[in-house]
Design a protein around this nucleic acid. Structure first.
Length: 496
RNA sequence: GGCGCCAUGGUGCAACGGUUAGCACAUCGCCCUUUCAAGGCGGUAAUGCGGGUUCGAUUCCCGCUGGCGCUACCA
């Protein structure tokens, strides 16, 4: 194998949809491995099926990879632009006797049903007559065409595909860094198509030709490819190359343990970005699906991840995508990320919702950072800053119905908050202790519990029942806004 | 149907022949908090079943069951 040199790995998505979380996890593992080993991470777009391809989706996939911080060293390469290479390879296989022309209509032989029934019939027949069970897969009759028969087919100008002439005996071996050394009976391998009748390569051909050409040393991909790997190992050798090391990673399943799909909710990386997840959090969550550092650590920054990642930590068990834990990670990152790293995300969110003010990036930068810091312990999504935290960044906000019901019940509140507003209006120095004193003095003078005023005031100045500590909030809002908001709330408050 | 892979609480992972089976999420309770989170403390909760091997199995082997994957001129 590759005796020396750095490992070369690749991520090869197919542009039939957005970047799927499973694909993102595979890309992440490849990227981590390359970074860990000082190798090369290559991006290749597998778009050989014109029918399903949506070229316009490529940009979205690349954007999602970038969002996750996964940068590639080579590519993106497009298989659709390398068609000649696959045809030449198929031709070589044909000439070396590893391939043959198949004239069957695409729908006749190929149907899984046909092969299945043939097998099933053979099995029962043999069982009935007590013979050894026939293992060999149904083969295409075109493999054994006589020269005359072939000439006749050519004469009819039937569309023809090129199939692989799989060996009938022996076994095929390959190495998998996750599943171990694998060996299968060649009799189980069918004569799969290499080149379609339209001249385009199938996945099996394209992937092998490209991985050889790009000198890929480790093929890391979903375990759904495990069963087809023997075919590829055979192809490598037929093409005169040694198979690379494979590393199949377990699949990500939905809560019902079936393959993750739209039925389970969001499956595209992009939707999580839109929902307000931090890429750091999403990535941290993802890496723990099917991989473990070997101990109980689970919060990793990029450097730690790169340092700790290894194929030996990859599990063989499929993992269920647990949205609740993803959210927990997001809340953790929202709280623990260095404030300077967080600010750009908040800015983006506020711009998105139309609340952004340029001053927050210049003259009021300090205020902005402080306010974000004040809000973040209670946030779970980036969106929370523009929705739940709206009153900190905008003058127009609504009073949450539940908050009013809970804290604006006392009939004395209208008069009390009016007095409070006056008290604050007359405050010479606006600081935490003074704000607190004004409120507590009023409560004492009226013989009330301070809590009544605290909770009612909170709703009046930020519109919600859940918010940062009241006097911190007042400081962040400033005297003018607190006074005006208190007065603005008076008409809404119950009167004696 | 055939072939293959997998199997620790509800979920994600630890324990790679000897632990009172550990951590995290979720969940329940308490503390903190005149809101709510965060945080702290504690509780409930797992080795799928049956055979072996061994002084001793979560761990090794076999069978079963279950789940998943492949079996396309999709990738």
């Amino acid at each position: 194998m590759t005796i020396s040199g750095k490992p070369r790995v690749r991520f090869a998505p197919s542009p039939t949809g957005y970047l799927h979380v499973g694909g993102a996890r595979t890309a992440l593992f490849n990227w981590l491995y390359a970074r860990r080993e000082g190798g090369v991470f290559i991006l290749r777009v597998e778009d050989t099926d014109a029918e399903r391809n949506r070229p316009e989706l490529v940009e979205g996939i690349l954007a999602s990879l970038k969002w996750l911080g996964l940068d590639w060293d080579e590519g993106p390469f497009f298989q659709s632009q390398r068609m000649e290479m696959y045809r030449a390879a198929a031709q070589r296989l044909l000439e070396s006797g590893h391939g043959y022309y198949c004239y069957c209509a695409a729908s006749s032989y190929a149907g899984a049903d046909a092969a299945q029934h043939e097998d099933a019939d053979a099995a029962t027949d043999h069982a009935a007559s007590g013979e050894v069970k026939q293992k060999r897969r149904a083969a295409c009759p075109c493999r054994n065409l006589t020269a005359e028969e072939r000439a006749e087919k050519e004469q009819q100008e039937l569309p023809k595909a090129i199939r692989f002439a799989a060996p009938h005996t022996g076994t095929t071996k390959f190495e998998d860094a996750v599943f171990g050394s694998r060996e299968v009976e060649n009799a189980e391998i069918e004569d799969f198509v290499l080149l379609r009748s339209n001249g385009a390569p199938t996945y099996q051909l394209g992937v092998v030709v490209d991985d050889i050409d790009m000198r890929i040393t480790h093929v890391m991909r979903g375990a759904d490819h495990l069963s087809n790997t023997p075919k590829q190992a055979l192809l490598y050798r037929a093409l005169g190359a040694e198979p690379p090391i494979f590393a199949h990673v377990p699949l990500i399943l939905g809560p019902d343990r079936t393959r993750l799909s739209k039925r389970h909710g969001a499956t595209s990386v992009e939707s999580y970005e839109v929902e307000g997840f931090l890429p750091e959090a999403f990535r941290n969550f993802l890496v723990l699906l099917g991989w473990s550092p070997g101990d109980d650590t689970e919060m990793f920054d990029t450097a730690a991840l790169i340092e700790k990642f290894s194929l030996s930590g990859v599990s063989r068990t499929n993992a269920v995508f647990d949205r609740a834990k993803l959210e927990w990670f997001n809340a953790q990152y929202l709280q623990k990320l260095p404030i300077d790293a967080l600010l750009p995300y908040i800015e983006k969110e506020l711009r998105r919702s139309g609340l952004w003010k340029e001053a927050w990036a210049s003259t009021q930068k300090e205020w902005f950072a402080h306010t974000v810091d004040l809000l973040r312990p209670r946030t779970r999504f980036l969106k929370d800053f523009s929705t739940w935290g709206r009153a900190f960044f905008a003058e127009d906000f609504e009073y949450e119905a539940a908050a009013k019901d809970k804290f604006w019940k006392d009939p004395r509140l209208g008069e009390l908050l009016g007095k409070l507003a006056d008290g604050y209006a007359g405050l010479a120095e606006w600081n935490h202790d003074n704000c607190e004193k004004v409120l507590r003095d009023l409560a004492a003078a009226e013989g009330l519990k301070a809590g009544l005023l605290i909770n009612a005031t909170r709703v009046a100045i930020v519109g919600v029942a859940v918010a940062p500590a009241l006097f911190e909030t007042m400081l962040a809002l400033g005297k003018d806004r607190v006074v005006s908001r208190l007065r603005r709330a008076l008409p809404e408050l119950p009167k004696a």
